[in-house]
Each structure stands twice: as structure tokens, then as C-alpha cells.
Amino acid sequence: MPRQFFVGGNFKMFDPPNGTIKSITDIVHNLNGAPLDPKTEVVVAPPALFILLVREHLKAELEVCSQNVFDKPNGAFTGEISAEQLTDSGIKWTLIGHSERRVVMGETDEFIASKTKAALDGSLSVILCIGETLEQRDSGRTIDVVTRQLNAVKAKIGDWSKIVVAYEPVWAIGTGKVATTEQAQEVHKAIREWLGKEVGKEAAEKTRVIYGGSVNEKNCGELARQDDVDGFLVGGASLKPACEFCLFLFFSAGTGGEC
């Protein structure tokens, strides 16, 4: 069976007027009223402060994702949130390994792998982010970097059925730059080949590999037509006015139309 197309909206911690109760509820209202492609799985990741607000008001067929999760099921860890707390609140997804966590917060490959295991053990599905810096790409190490990040996770887990791999080149996140269709497809194909070799044929065939990095409704159509691009993780474009996230969902799924 073909892999179900996947679009995630990562709302991050943007300044007002984005990232407020009003802006978040406006996005939820737009999504609830949009005639979205039923073949596309849509997951949104609001800041932790708003996660229950979104889950309460977002229609049931759309899922809500935490932007973070800790690698322990419980304990005296001020400021952290566990997989069990998320699932108890009706949250079924979490982001793990985003470059902003790796670079700004200093999260290592091993810590990210440990968080992935804890999330899966706690019945969450995971959007696992991987990607290289500009220096790493320019030195020809892109595939080495992303497979190193994947190998760290493989050392901790065996079942990849609840993982979506998000390839996000660090040099393209929030910069306005975007990988060419050829660059994106090359890395996505390499990821799928790694899955086939290191995890198994079924994982290679079924695991969705999505793209993120300054992707928007103007460039997503061509990217979506690549054989190994199964969707997108959208950052800034998921918070823009005029329901750009809804438009993005239409264009990336190839349906066109208006919200």
C-alpha cells in the first residue's frame, strides 16, 4: 500500500501576534473548517502552554503533538513532561530531535535516542527530526550525519512502525533557503535505503520520510512529487495569516483550492 501523506505543523515559540491564545485558536478554527484531503494525516505541535487548549478544540480526526518529551517516565524533573502525561491528556505524538533542541539545548544523538525509546514505550508516535548543518553539507558529510543520527536511535529501539522521520537540513530552517527537489530526494532515498539495510524491508516500505526546512505552499508541490518525500514538517508557514497552513495542506496534497 502507498504511504499515507503526512503534514505536521510545528508552531514553535514565536513572538506575538503569533504564538498567542488568539493566534492558536484562529489556526484551530481554520483547520476545523477547512475541507482537508482525507488521505492526508495532519498533526499540529503547539507550545506546551497551549497543547490542551488545541486538543480540546481541534476536531478529532486531526492529531496534536508535543514539541518535546523527557526520557524518563516519571521523577523529580522540573520543567519536563513525560510520555505518560501526554497520552493521559489525549496527546498521541511528540517531536524529538529537532535541530533547535540539538543545537540550542545541546541534546546529543544518544539523549535523543533515549527520548525516542521513552516515547515509544509510553505509547506515543514520534516525529524524529534529523539533518545536517551547512558546513557538514559543504564537506560532503550529509549522508554520514543523518545515518549517524538514525543509528543512535536504532541502538535503542527495534520497532519503527510509530516513527515518522523528518529530514530537516539545519541550513534551511527559518532561513528562507530550501533544499532543491534533487537534494531532498537524494537524502530521502538514502534514508529509505538505510531503513531497508539496517531495520528491514517492511520498515523501508512503510516508514514515512518527510521534509522540513523553509517549506511553504509555493515549493511544496514539486517536493511532494518526489518518490521518497512522504510529506512535510512546516514551521513558520504554519503560523502565517490568511490560513496559509490550510493552503499549504491543499497544495502539498496536490488538490489546490481555497480555505
Rank of each mutant, 00 (worst) to 15 (best):
P2C: 11
R3S: 00
F5Y: 10
N10K: 02
F11C: 10
D15V: 11
P17R: 07
P17E: 14
G19Q: 08
I21W: 04
I21M: 14
K22Q: 15
S23G: 10
I24P: 04
I24L: 02
V28R: 03
H29F: 07
N30E: 15
A34I: 03
A34V: 02
K39N: 14
K39D: 14
T40D: 12
A45L: 07
A45T: 04
P47L: 05
F50D: 15
F50K: 03
L52A: 08
L53T: 15
L58G: 04
K59Y: 00
A60P: 08
A60W: 02
E63G: 06
Q67S: 04
N68I: 09
V69R: 05
N74T: 14
G75C: 03
G75S: 03
G75K: 14
A76E: 14
A76P: 10
G79Y: 07
E80D: 09
E84F: 12
E84G: 12
T87Q: 13
T87G: 10
D88P: 08
G90L: 04
I91V: 13
T94G: 00
L95R: 09
I96N: 03
S99D: 08
E100L: 05
V104M: 15
G106R: 01
F111C: 13
F111E: 11
I112E: 11
I112Y: 07
K117A: 15
A119F: 02
G122P: 05
L124H: 05
S125M: 12
V126H: 08
V126F: 08
V126R: 13
I127D: 05
C129D: 04
G131V: 02
T133R: 00
L134Y: 02
Q136W: 02
D138K: 15
S139P: 03
R141M: 10
D144L: 12
D144E: 12
V145M: 06
T147H: 05
R148K: 15
Q149P: 07
K154H: 13
K156H: 15
D159R: 11
W160S: 07
S161D: 09
K162F: 12
V165T: 04
A166Y: 04
Y167M: 01
E168N: 12
P169G: 08
P169M: 02
I173W: 07
G174V: 00
G174A: 09
T181P: 04
T181E: 08
Q183N: 08
A184T: 00
Q185T: 08
E186L: 09
V187L: 05
I191L: 12
I191A: 13
L195Y: 08
L195I: 13
G200P: 02
A204T: 06
E205Q: 11
T207K: 04
R208H: 04
R208W: 01
V209K: 11
Y211D: 00
G212I: 12
G213D: 12
G213E: 11
S214K: 01
S214Y: 07
S214Q: 01
G221S: 11
E222D: 10
A224P: 06
Q226T: 06
D228A: 04
V229F: 06
D230Y: 06
G231V: 01
F232S: 00
F232N: 05
L233D: 11
G235W: 01
G235K: 09
S238L: 03
L239K: 15
P241Y: 01
E244T: 15
C246W: 10
L247E: 09
L249H: 07
S252E: 05
T255F: 02
